[in-house]
Design a protein around this nucleic acid. Structure first.
Lengths: 325, 325
DNA sequence: TTGAAAGCGCTAACAT
DNA sequence: ATGTTAGCGCTTTCAA
């Protein structure tokens, strides 16, 4: 028969410590410009601990006009151990400054993100999948003070991925390249930028024209694409992602072709299955761990007022050499 | 030189629509027991849309005494594609009822979880790894109305997955089975339950003793495991997940063995790459759409007051037949 | 060094 | 059917 057990409030702590709410607030927030004698301080801290006091977030942010929630939007599907470590890094770094990180997993972020941002009252939103101007604007209107993962920067990054793939294949002496487009979904924008990165490199390096083909996640249809590449003299294929790359590999297998001898294949993502594909997949991974701390700092700066939150590269693409290319 | 651009408030909407704040609240929340004439309704809705009004979450939950945030605590490290899909389903189902799902990734949930729970003012906390009484209690104190930490139920489910794998292999006439344990990470608890499901089935069906072996996501070491299985007369292998299964396939390939002729291999997860593994991987998938809905319903019930939130199965395992077994 | 008091933006009795 | 009003729990001037 427990009473609805009202949550412990700051007033309770004040009473318990024999001070005013104001003092409690000062102590608990370590408010700058306030001198609290050590003794009072202890009294408050003790009382708070004794009562297991936890400020109510909603009241806090309503009063202060800002929340300490940071929202991280993650691309759909799998989250590698790598990425996971990055997230924990980021969370830890932010926590060190009193900020809480929560994540949101979603394929594409449509209207939802701004809504979610408002729903959790996030003061910063970070995304690993870049968003367009419109979304950025919406997020700001939804209350996000800092929005990271935008615009031009992202475009360049996406292209960089394609370049990395192409350069590697060029280094392998391939004369004409193919591009394996994902047959389904996948944000067209990303697909286009990545593709463009490859195409530009082909042009710059004087290779034959890039031959993009859609590739289903099914061996038989994939084999058809392979046939077409073979017919066109393609000897290297950049795939939009690792899954698509593996589909190409499966198609080649069906035709008795081998990577990289017949066609070199390179993916993107370095998914857990990549090292055990047949043959092990060469791909472009991302160095997330490294960037965790940087990113946290950027958020902090942004929140502190450093206006043009010009985010750095948030995904540092990195070639992962294995057997397929 | 934009003014700090005060966010649009409910009062703004009221003014714009020429009604009181109360009416705005009634309309926007679709408050039961209030009769709002269609015309007023439209006026308010229009004004809200015109102003791109978004209620401030903190104010809402402070006033209402409850938030519409649901926190999902995920086990550390990697998040498989299928888990990710499940999360999206859950999020969608909850969103359908006005609840927002955010996730938290962390190795173990120590003191942090209750803190985070308070920080985002979550009214429900769900965890895929069961937590103890103490944590549950702390979460409640931190403001969570509903705490779901999949207990016994989960155990049975995990075993069911193993049974499904084993039964399929038995149906293929395999006499002795092997189990491919993930070499790294993966919550030991889950691994053990899944393994147990297989072991129990082996015992019940009078097969030889199950032979579990750790399998790295690397072809060469995987081949070693394969050697050992071959030596022991194993003709069917259940893998902890699809990645591990693919590692086994890669190991077999290295030895010139074929699935399912030499050894039948079955995974868990039905990752996107599964249909394009060589050969296409037979595996156990999950009906996420269905279970996402169920879980969402459980949360809703709990929030609505239905006390003993006995959650149903959250992962409905389902055999996906392809070529490898 | 501490406290009193005025809100933050919203909901929900309680009028009307 | 709609408006008035009183908080929700906290931060933050401004006084003392």
């Amino acid at each position: 028969m427990r009473t609805p057990s009202r949550r412990v409030t700051s007033a309770d702590v004040a009473r318990e410590a024999g001070v005013s709410q104001t003092t409690v607030s000062f102590v608990l927030n370590d408010t700058r410009g306030q001198t609290i004698p050590e003794e009072t301080r202890r009294r408050v801290l003790d009382a708070a601990k004794r009562l297991d006091y936890r400020p109510r977030a909603s009241a806090r942010s309503l009063a202060a006009g800002r929340s300490d929630v940071v929202l991280l939007a993650l691309p759909g599907l799998p989250i590698s151990a790598n990425l996971s470590r990055f997230i924990e890094q980021l969370a830890a770094a932010l926590a060190g400054h009193g900020l809480s990180l929560v994540t949101h997993l979603a394929e594409g972020h449509g209207r939802q993100l701004p809504d979610l941002c408002a729903a959790v009252d996030a003061s910063a939103v970070i995304s690993l999948i870049p968003f367009d101007e419109e979304t950025t604007e919406a997020l700001h209107r939804a209350g996000a003070q800092v929005v990271l993962g935008t615009g031009q920067q992202a475009r360049a990054e996406l292209q960089e991925i394609g370049r990395l793939q192409a350069e590697h294949l060029v280094g392998l002496g391939r004369g004409r390249l193919g591009y394996a487009l994902p047959a389904e979904h996948a944000s067209q924008w990303r697909v286009q930028e990545r593709l463009r990165g490859v195409a530009m490199t082909c042009a710059e390096r004087g290779l034959g024209e890039l031959l993009p083909l859609a590739v289903d996640l099914d061996p038989a249809p994939a084999a058809l694409a392979v046939d077409e590449w073979v017919r066109a003299g393609v000897t290297g294929v950049c795939a939009y992602n690792d899954e698509t790359a593996m589909a190409v590999l499966a198609g080649m297998h069906l035709r008795g072709l081998r990577a990289p001898d017949d066609i070199a294949v390179i993916g993107v993502g370095d998914i857990p299955a990549a090292p055990v594909s047949i043959p092990p997949l060469t791909t472009v991974g991302f160095d997330y761990e490294l960037t965790g701390r940087d990113l946290a700092q950027t958020v902090l700066d942004g929140l502190a007022g450093a206006k043009p939150s010009t985010q750095d590269s948030i995904s540092r693409p990195l070639l992962v050499r294995r057997a397929s290319a």
